[in-house]
Nucleic acid binder design. Sequence first.
RNA 1: GGGCGCGUAGCUCAGCGGGAGAGCGCUCGCCUCACACGCGAGAGGUCGCUGGUUCGAACCCAGCCGCGCCCACCA
Length: 850
Amino acid sequence: MNVPDKPSLDGLEARWGEWWEAAGTYRFDRTKTRGEIFAIDTPPPTASGSLHVGHVMSYTHTDLMARYKRMRGLEVFYPMGWDDNGLPTERRVQNYFGVRCDPSLPSDPDFDASTLERPDDKQPVAIARGNFIELCERLTTEDEKAYESLFRLLGLSVDWAQTYTTIGEVSRRASQRAFLRLLDRGLAYNAEAPTMWDVDFRSAVAQAEIEDREQDGHYHRIVFDRDGGEGPIEIETSRPELLPACVALVVHPDDPRAASLVGTTALTPLFRVPVPVVAHELADPDKGTGVAMICTFGDVTDVTWWRELGLPARVVIRRDGTLAPGRFGEPGWESRDAEAANTAMAELSGKGAKQARRRIVELLVESGALLGEPEAIRHAVKFYEKGDRPLEVISSRQWFIKTLEFKERLLARGREMRWHPVFMGARYTSWVEGLNQDWALSRQRYFGVPFPVWYALDAEGEPDYTAPIVPSEAALPIDPQEDVPPDYTAAQRGVPGGFMGDPDVMDTWATSSLTPQIAARWEDDPDLFTRLFPMDLRPQAHEIIRTWLFYTVLKAELEHGSLPFTDAAISGFVLDPDRKKMSKSKGNVVVPTEVFERHSADAVRYWAGSARLGVDAAFDEQQMKVGRRLAIKILNASKFVLAMDATGGGVTEPVDLAMLATLRGVVLEATAAFEDYEHAKALDVVERFFWGFTDDYLELVKQRTYGARGPEAAASAIGALRQALDIVLRLFAPVLPYVTEEVWSWWREGSVHRSAWPATDELVSSDGADPEVYEIAAAVLGAVRKEKALAKVSLKVPVLRVIARDTAERLAKLRLADADLRAAGSIEAVVYEEAADASIDVELAPAEPV
RNA sequence: GGGCGCGUAGCUCAGCGGGAGAGCGCUCGCCUCACACGCGAGAGGUCGCUGGUUCGAACCCAGCCGCGCCCACCA
């Protein structure tokens, strides 16, 4: 027994953090079988940036579950990954080192960034992809160290021997292997197809990375002449600059005008291009004039129309977002006045969409084709979530993964998964139901996992995309820019009759969607994999249900025919005190390290643990102060409990048994709450008991522990106190790992975090005890305190007598606590009066003359 | 436009069919031998609004209002 005189929270994080590491308290034991393991698919935080209190909350939520399951006897697999793959890292490396990636360069094996020659400060140095990746890894290593130390401070019970990075070799191999297998099964395909395209990043983006933003715009009413005579046709468009890309007009088949319009031909204004009028269900009779122009391509509806109606393509937007020069008069670019069309096009060429729009409106006004004033509107426009300009639909060659045909299976997997909270499952369902394109997998970027394929070049040097050359799985990971395909030589790269490597990298989600497989060392360590996969828990934020969660389900379904994990726990956002989401741009982020210093890690965890899953939580330092107080209270109450020597007698006093019976209910409730992923409820139940334990129970039995009623009665109290403390420490351990470990170390062996979660059979001695004894006695004690507070006297002032009126049954219970009550409240006598209405009268002794 | 969640004391939230609660904040008091980094007490609320079901509604149902998020084919 080693109880300090002045227990303190100071230094607990450092002391126990080191101890846990040295003792291997959270080390994963891989000899356990799947049924004995609880496997967590930890979210890998983005390694470029900084952790904020949102991370603190959600990672704490995961840790609560990890610690609970560990105490339940499960071997917890709790790894940590670092997401260093992707655009944020790429950008930071470019700025930090002044380099840019040129995938056409071969890697320099002697590359050294410190001797990097920068002939011109303004011009970044071009380096090979392999060297670029080295730099990315080097820079992110620094971030990862900082993150790890913060996560350790927070007390995450991660096994730090189980780490991975999403750009590391294991991740690249897994990503490429998964891709090759999908390719082999025909589930991955490449195609020249219209795809959502960010003109600034010059890369394709997937549906999941697109967000709608409300934008100001205008409806322009434009009149098309008819090719042949009948009256003109009016349409409305918010994108008049796409007029040269117009390939048809469309009406709904049920529109009364359809009969006279469909099958006829109209002429585009300015460009005089004959376009057919066609019918399609997607044309909305109530929108605009009911007639829409189909352009290649203004939006995804255009793509649908173009594809289903077999229309030609006349693309005018280039990959950088500017308009191309006119080609009217060439094949496929028919015009009744090609010269005028090209003149008009020349006015637009080289301009971005916005400028081109402004100019074409002027041209349309001059030509009289624009009717009236453009009508100002607000409408939703699609953006890449990280982009600044609206997306364009641009045709390019991309890799896709078949997704649409698996919708039903993916929906079924969503129903099969357990969602915490349940309503978050609806997010997944609505996303899957709304899918309208296969997963566009390729990105025209550099830092990422390359596609492990090459293409044979024909005699003209043109690649054959239909038959990609693939490496063996054993060779993975490969970089097709560095490595040479089987049966070729390096000298054949890029020459007719030779080969070329696929220049693109995969969407970062292609890797992130394999985090369970990566952490479990899929195929690299089959023994480990069978012990871990499918995992138990995926904790994550709700904003990435459609990306991380969805893609992970998709990959597991396609590769393994199973869920990747059985449970998903979704955390909410952290809001600042003004109820706004914390974000760097709003300047309202709180630096976590300072918060730990002010309140202690346990206190911060208390705040996080008080927030339920799926519910946005306010950042609330007051709540952390409460947590700190609770932690200190645990120290002091423990000190009191452990100060008295245990004499070894049994727990016999009714009040003691009643308290333990109450605790039994608490154990049941807290356990049920954790099983339901309701950690906040578990904490609430335990905390409520604990405050009553210190405020009421400790006061009731304090005098007795000092021996006021003899050694046997004292032993009963001391025994009950110790048993309660033993259980309460374990109940608090998931939320408050530091303070509970500290107290545990005073009198127990090993770590509280490897001790067993409390079970009711530990409290068998209180079987049949009536918790009401404790409850009623506490109520009387409360009444006494109230009387003294109202009289503004010290709690030491004696009470002449307390008259308790209640039913005979309850009075009998109160009598069982008579002696403790009189000692605790300095009460000379308790009078028991049977009455229909319960009430308590307290008569204080007259004040001492001063 | 569709969906989900939320609206309870000044603040943060629990309660989800039969007494309107907790903590913080505020006010008042107390150095009571575990704790002044403490202890005790008090004040404070037509439970968003309107209807309905029920003997009884903060809780169930319907409609509305407000806030947040998710989804949706930008004419």
